[in-house]
Amino acid sequence: MKTPNGQRILIVDDEDTLARLMQALLEHLGYTVDRAVDGEKALQMGAQRNYAAVICDLLMPILNGMELFRIWQRESPELAQRVIFVTGDNLGTRTNRFVELSGRPCLYKPFDIKDLTAALDEVTRVHASS
């Protein structure tokens, strides 16, 4: 795994415990991590800082992951290309359809941390080379 060199990651998840665990892991791996509890907060943070990757839950109150992604596709297409979705909705056809159409990687809960770091690695590598 390539050293992250303090690359900034945004975790968007209303599951506070899971978000904290991911933050602890990623900080341990050398990333700088910010957290947002819903899509609206993430929208504000995405406008203020440049993130190497965004780990985004799909199901959240106020503004969910799908709506957030659509806004970024319109207003910040580069940021939209750095999104990694996470979801517990493994059976939902609507979710699957959305993920397929978005073309973004998606981790289905409960996912392995190896899958998380691999997805992060891929997204940040593309980001670093662009």
Binding site: L18, L21, L25, G88, I113
Partner: peptide, 17 residues
């Protein structure tokens, strides 16, 4: 499925982290 997957993800993540 969604309701169960969140706590399962936390359990798995807790152990792995």
């Amino acid at each position: 499925g969604h309701t169960l997957n969140n706590p399962l993800a936390i359990i798995r993540m807790s152990i792995q982290v």
